[in-house]
Simulated scan of single mutants.
Amino acid sequence: MLVILATVSLFLLLVKLGFWQLSRAELKEELQSQLTSRQAAAPLSYRKLLSLPASEPLTGYKLSTTVTPVGNKVFLLDNQIFNGQVGYLALQVMQVNPIDPWLLVELGFVPAGNDRRVLPKLPHINQSQTFTGRLYQKQANPMSSDLFAEEGWPKRVQNLNISQIETTLNHPVALAVLQPESIKGINLPHPWQPIPLSAQKHLGYALQWFSMAVAFALLVFYFIRVRLKKK
């Protein structure tokens, strides 16, 4: 009886995983449609951005605003990979209005050196600039979401935890990062991967789980048939 229950449970688990991947594929298709729609719309103002509900996903919106650097405060988001290189995503702290939350502006991807004790030299935005670009929010790491901020500036961090960044800066911060179309005097690459896995990837995974379920069912049927013949 236990063998039968375990066999049925495993088969149902494989099927369930297949349907879960199908649901993920459907969700990714909706997200891609949403991103396309937002990219085609006019840029938001900073006031409009701040007025959106906190529960509203902000990735894909366009923003146009003028910013002023808050000193040379730059966060280095660790463990980033671009074109096969390991490095950091540099994010500079900027002010839009004195009374509003600060905004993180992406300077771009910076390769890491061979010695982790030595942080890379970084360009900075040193004066007010008007930017138009797209917004994104990093997906939370299910294993660890803490900032793990190191001492000094630039400040290496492990996750883009906005609430802990606010604590570090002792100032409110907007919930999304601005990736400008261009930055005067800075020519770093700007990776863009708002959807880590495409709908097609999830469909492929669903096919794998369903195939495993069918193969498992055939294997069980084969062993049952062999045992019946022996009897």
Results as ranks from 00 to 15, higher is better:
residue 2 L to T: 15
residue 2 L to G: 15
residue 11 F to D: 00
residue 14 L to I: 08
residue 14 L to C: 12
residue 17 L to E: 02
residue 19 F to A: 07
residue 21 Q to Y: 04
residue 23 S to Q: 15
residue 26 E to S: 15
residue 34 Q to R: 13
residue 38 R to T: 06
residue 43 P to R: 07
residue 47 R to L: 10
residue 47 R to S: 09
residue 50 L to N: 04
residue 52 L to F: 02
residue 52 L to Y: 03
residue 53 P to G: 01
residue 55 S to E: 13
residue 57 P to I: 04
residue 62 K to Y: 04
residue 71 G to L: 05
residue 73 K to Y: 09
residue 74 V to R: 03
residue 83 N to C: 03
residue 83 N to T: 10
residue 83 N to P: 00
residue 83 N to R: 14
residue 88 Y to I: 12
residue 92 Q to D: 04
residue 96 V to N: 01
residue 97 N to E: 14
residue 102 W to N: 11
residue 102 W to G: 01
residue 102 W to R: 14
residue 109 F to I: 13
residue 111 P to T: 11
residue 113 G to K: 05
residue 116 R to E: 14
residue 120 P to V: 08
residue 128 S to W: 06
residue 132 T to M: 02
residue 133 G to K: 03
residue 137 Q to V: 12
residue 141 N to W: 04
residue 146 D to Y: 13
residue 146 D to A: 07
residue 147 L to V: 13
residue 147 L to P: 01
residue 158 Q to E: 15
residue 161 N to M: 05
residue 161 N to D: 08
residue 168 T to M: 14
residue 168 T to F: 11
residue 170 N to W: 04
residue 171 H to C: 04
residue 173 V to I: 13
residue 183 I to S: 02
residue 187 N to Q: 09
residue 189 P to S: 03
residue 190 H to W: 07
residue 194 P to L: 01
residue 195 I to E: 00
residue 196 P to A: 05
residue 200 Q to W: 07
residue 208 Q to H: 10
residue 211 S to L: 12
residue 213 A to T: 07
residue 213 A to K: 01
residue 214 V to E: 03
residue 214 V to W: 07
residue 215 A to F: 05
residue 216 F to G: 00
residue 218 L to D: 01
residue 221 F to L: 15
residue 225 R to P: 00
residue 227 R to N: 10
residue 229 K to M: 11
